[in-house]
């Protein structure tokens, strides 16, 4: 086995031998299942007429132009769930600093760049795994609910499956962003606060605010969450845009490249900021 493969296997063993990965995965599944199921029920109910628009509080104007409902519900896997792979990645690196396990790690493999590379690959794959779990929640529960209202869940549609594949890719890259953030900000508490504050508060506000003018909207497209939504191809955000239309988002592959750039920049920066420093 090559040294790099050994390093990847060791990082997998690290990730899987504490409880963190399945606790995060379980919380993520429950959270997405609840939101996807709930909103699928509401919108599918309106669309099928099972729920009257008046009851839904839309002022009797009928359902808003939602575009296609199923992709929106399915995209919750990444648009809502992306914070979980970020946390997984950030905790996997900050944990090494916090518990001083960098010492045995670098004793067993003093090639530090190789260790960080192996960690990135490992967490990328773990993030893809999180993507699958998240899709089980959004597509599994969402399609069930949509189907129950007699609306077509579009499971035979190739567009749906493209969305599913791109969601897995997005979640994998988000874990890579987390690894990068963790080496950039090795303090675990600080990293977690940044992840939660940025993903749950700062970025949504920035994205919303940026939509009001053409220029800022162009910049807003390069925010990591916007890039991720572009990659996946659908999001609650693009539909809730104040201009009423999904303003020129990036192409899906552009979004993917932007997200990749964030992950690579953070990881390479973090390598110099913390990873190659003295371990004391």
């Amino acid at each position: 086995m090559t040294p790099f493969l050994r390093a990847i296997r060791a990082e997998f063993a690290k990730t899987l031998t504490t409880r963190m990965w399945w606790v995060l995965a379980a919380v993520m599944f429950g959270y997405i299942a609840l939101l996807a199921g709930g909103l699928a029920a509401l919108f599918a109910g309106i669309e099928s007429g099972a729920i009257s628009p008046d009851a839904a509080g839309t002022g009797g104007q009928g359902a808003p132009p939602l575009g296609s409902l199923p992709p929106l519900v399915y995209s919750f896997a990444s648009s809502v769930g992306y914070v979980f792979p970020v946390l997984l990645g950030a905790l996997s690196t900050t944990g090494e600093f916090r518990h001083q396990t960098l010492t045995p790690t670098f004793l067993a493999n003093p090639r530090r760049g190789q260790v960080l590379g192996a960690k990135t690959v490992t967490l990328f794959l773990a993030g893809a795994g999180f993507g699958v779990v998240a899709l089980l929640a959004s597509v599994g529960v969402g399609a069930l609910v949509i189907g129950a209202f007699g609306v077509d869940p579009l499971l035979g549609d190739s567009g749906t499956w493209a969305l599913i594949g791109r969601t897995v890719l997005a979640m994998a890259m988000w874990a890579g962003v987390g690894v990068g953030l963790g080496v950039l900000v090795p303090s675990q508490v600080a990293a977690v606060v940044i992840v939660l504050a940025f993903t749950q508060f700062v970025e949504p506000l920035l994205r919303f605010a940026s939509m009001f003018t053409e220029v800022t909207a162009g910049i807003g497209n390069y925010l990591p969450g916007a890039a991720s939504d572009a990659l996946v191809g659908a999001s609650f955000f693009t539909i809730a845009s104040p201009t009423g239309t999904s303003t020129a988002m990036l192409e899906w592959w552009q979004g993917g490249l932007v997200l990749l750039a964030y992950a690579v920049a953070a990881t390479v920066g973090g390598y110099f900021v913390s990873w190659k420093r003295d371990v004391t």
């Binding site: 086995m1 040294p3 050994r6 390093a7 296997r9 060791a10 063993a13 690290k14 031998t17 504490t18 409880r19 963190m20 944990g95 518990h99 001083q100 396990t101 960098l102 010492t103 045995p104 790690t105 004793l107 067993a108 493999n109």
Partner: peptide, 21 residues
Amino acid sequence: ASFHPGRTARNHLAVYAIAAG
């Protein structure tokens, strides 16, 4: 003390045994 408190001793050693081949 360079241990992750949530990992068992056997797994702790296994991680580095794997890393060192």
